[in-house]
């Protein structure tokens, strides 16, 4: 599945991305509002689903080499969050779905949780 497919599945809005980011293949994802836990437990997941809309969601993705952050529950991030994502070349999507529903739909379509540490 590519990020483009995810946009369709989650009825998501693209807040930042480019062709290269949108066409990349994604197999694993994780969902958390706690960045501490993402840093401690996540291994090679390329996508982060979160309700956290501050810059630390992008920084956490950056440290973990994740390529896409999906903001759930329809939350709008500050402009500074998008600016940071552009600078770090990380795709940002926004979906009106809740965390549970967004994760469920991705799982149903073949995305898995991957290994944890």
């Amino acid at each position: 599945m590519t990020v483009r497919d995810i946009i369709k599945i989650l009825d998501a809005e693209l807040l930042y991305g480019n062709d290269e980011l949108l066409d990349q293949e994604v197999a694993h994802a994780c969902g958390s509002d706690m960045m501490s836990d993402v840093l401690a437990f996540v291994k090679d997941q390329a996508v982060l689903l979160t309700g956290l809309i501050n810059t630390q969601a992008i920084r956490t993705a950056e440290m973990m080499d994740m390529k896409c952050v999906i903001l759930v529950r329809g939350k709008d991030p500050l402009e500074s969050v998008i600016d940071l994502a552009k600078d770090r070349d990380i795709c940002v999507l926004k979906t009106p779905l809740t965390m549970f529903s967004a994760c469920g739909l991705l799982y149903e379509n073949g995305i898995r949780g991957g290994k944890s540490k």
Partner: peptide, 11 residues
């Protein structure tokens, strides 16, 4: 803000 899970130093 997404931190304070008590995983900082252990991590």
């Amino acid at each position: 803000l997404g931190f304070g899970a008590g995983m900082g130093l252990p991590n």
